[in-house]
Design a protein around this nucleic acid. Structure first.
Length: 510
RNA sequence: GACCCCAUCGUCCAGCGGUCUAGGACACCGGCCUUUCACGCCGGCAACACGGGUUCGAGUCCCGUUGGGGUCGCCA
């Protein structure tokens, strides 16, 4: 029997199975999150366990309530209902990490007192400098400078109010060996594990501390998450050991990939769950498709529902190769649901629940009316609201009077800008576009002209801001990115320079 | 660069030492059906990365090489 088989057996639950989804509310709900949610959800259901939603909002800068709401909405749309969470409560709450600060600080104090962690007074500047010098060396990561500060001195400096973080003391030799449900034994030299920051200078915990404390306190039995976390497991192992807690089962799922095999990214694929919702994919189809990425139905069925999956699912059977997210196959599956599972009447209901409802149609009519000579003009005029394959002609984009390079830069800056706003309503769009035009020294229409093409696929269309607002942020942003791509996209080097420009334009001046 | 993970058709999966001249699905290409298209049906193209072991026997086990991915933040 192979090692893999050995570790894949004997995982019979000793106590109740509890899985969790722990997204950070820092952006748009991602299909990768849905993917992890699906497996965690199914595993919990299969074992009559619980599925928990925990919001990891420990990044004060980037976390937002709007994002949290969007995540909850997206998961609800998918139909993955959790048993405990910030909105539904539960006996292990609160389920928002920003509401658990005292818990973390208590645990950090304990580690500090026991000499398992230490305060670090290094400035961000020093850390940046240190990383620069170590850049291509064997060991990167924190050099441990503050570890050697005598306890008494450290104490004094903390009490004097000197800004500091708290770092975990990592062993300086030996090897960390842990078990991943899907991979078996994974080993990593402790030397390659640096002293992780546990508590930030603002008193908030880092992911590493919060995740361990919460998973333990919330009695999580199986940690099902993305492979990107595999390398930080030793840090978590250490925390469990220091606290004297039992480790949950670790299960790192492969990462969804772009066509070129890199980690699924919004630049190369629509990644927001909302995009699939807004372009008319059925939640069951999306879930079904996601399930096929790494798991296969024992009978070889391609189309199966959640209940069926729960029935037959085996976590240990998940495949490890990073699956490429193939929209064509998703479309095919979605088509099967549309034609096999619904009557025409039901589909009309679906259509109305989507965009063809009175409220949305009135909004669209408000901006169409003045442009109609006959009612039949309405169809072609408004097709942009009911289509996904709006492909801007690069020639139309170039004909807008901007130099191509300038055009690409503008589109990229705009994508970043709009990604950063919370609600893409008309006022916001207006404000942002005007600010962008202003900062770039362009007349507003110079900037909006190519946007009509990007959003509608045509050189003229219904009013831009309204159209974008009706389409929603997910579709609007995808169309902007597609236009950028149609122009050849931007190179890594260009993006680097543009990022700096973006920061100069929007951050320094506020 | 260092470390960790991974490796079957272009893509997603099946295969868990012999039944593999490697199976299914998407995509693609033919044909049939059909007023068009789509659906459906039939057929085709197409893969075990490479090199060493282990074994009577390797896609399946071990090692190496190569390739891909991830991580190296007071982000998660």
């Amino acid at each position: 029997m192979s090692g893999r088989d050995t570790h894949r057996k004997a995982q019979m639950p000793k106590s109740k199975i509890r899985t969790r989804l722990a997204p950070s509310p820092t952006g748009v709900p991602h299909v990768g999150t849905a993917y992890q949610a699906l497996f965690g959800y199914v595993w919990a259901r299969k074992n009559d366990g619980s599925f928990i939603l925990r919001i990891e909002d420990t990044d004060r800068e980037r976390s937002s309530k709007a994002s949290e709401k969007a995540i909850i909405r997206a998961l609800r749309w998918l139909g993955l209902q959790w048993d405990e969470g910030p909105d539904v409560g539960g006996e292990y709450g609160p389920y928002r990490q920003s509401e658990r600060l005292e818990i973390y600080s208590k645990h950090v104090s304990q580690l500090l007192k026991e000499g398992k962690a230490y305060p670090c007074f290094c400035s961000r500047e020093r850390l940046a400098e240190m990383r620069k010098t170590r850049r291509s060396g064997a060991d990167t990561g924190y050099d441990g400078l503050c570890r050697s500060i005598p306890a008494s001195e450290a104490q004094k400096r903390m009490e004097s109010g000197e800004s500091h973080t708290v770092r975990l003391k990592s062993p300086q030799d030996g090897e960390c060996v842990f078990t991943d449900l899907l991979r078996g034994e994974v080993r990593k030299d402790w030397r390659s594990v640096d002293d992780q920051v546990l508590l930030k200078a603002d008193g908030y915990p880092t992911y590493h501390l919060a995740v361990v404390v919460d998973d333990h306190l919330m009695r999580i039995s199986h940690i099902i998450r993305g492979e990107e976390w595999l390398n930080s497991v030793p840090k978590h192992v250490l925390l469990y050991r220091y606290f004297g807690w039992e480790m949950p089962v670790m299960c790192h799922l492969p990462l969804l990939r772009n066509k070129d095999k890199s980690k699924l990214s919004k630049r190369k694929n629509p990644t927001s769950i909302g995009f699939y919702r807004d372009t008319g994919y059925l939640p069951r189809a999306l879930l079904n498709y996601l399930a096929m990425m790494g798991w296969s139905h024992p009978e070889g069925e391609e189309k199966f529902d959640l209940e069926n999956m729960i029935d037959l699912f085996e976590l240990e059977k998940v495949t490890l190769g990073g699956p490429v997210f193939d929209v064509d196959k998703l479309r095919w599956l979605n088509a099967r649901y549309i034609r096999e599972d619904h009557t025409p009447e039901e589909l009309v209901d679906l259509l109305q629940g989507w965009r063809l409802n009175r409220q949305t149609l009135v909004r669209i009519m408000e901006i169409s009316q003045g442009r109609l000579q006959t009612l039949s003009d309405w169809g072609p005029l408004t097709s942009l609201f009911f289509a996904d394959d709006v492909r801007p002609d690069p020639a139309d984009l170039r004909a807008c009077g901007l130099e191509e390079r300038e055009l690409r830069e503008m589109l990229q800056l705009l994508v970043w800008k709009l990604e950063s706003v919370q609600d893409l309503d008309i006022d916001t769009i207006s404000i942002e576009l005007r600010e962008m035009a202003d900062k770039l020294g362009l007349k507003l229409r110079k900037l909006t002209a190519p946007l009509y093409v990007a959003i509608s696929g045509k050189t003229s269309s219904t009013p831009l801001f309204d159209s974008m607002a009706i389409l929603g942020p997910d579709i609007s942003l995808v169309r902007l990115r597609r236009a950028l791509e149609a122009l050849g996209g931007t190179s890594k080097k260009q993006r680097k320079a543009l990022e700096k420009r973006y920061r100069d334009l929007f951050e320094k001046s506020g």
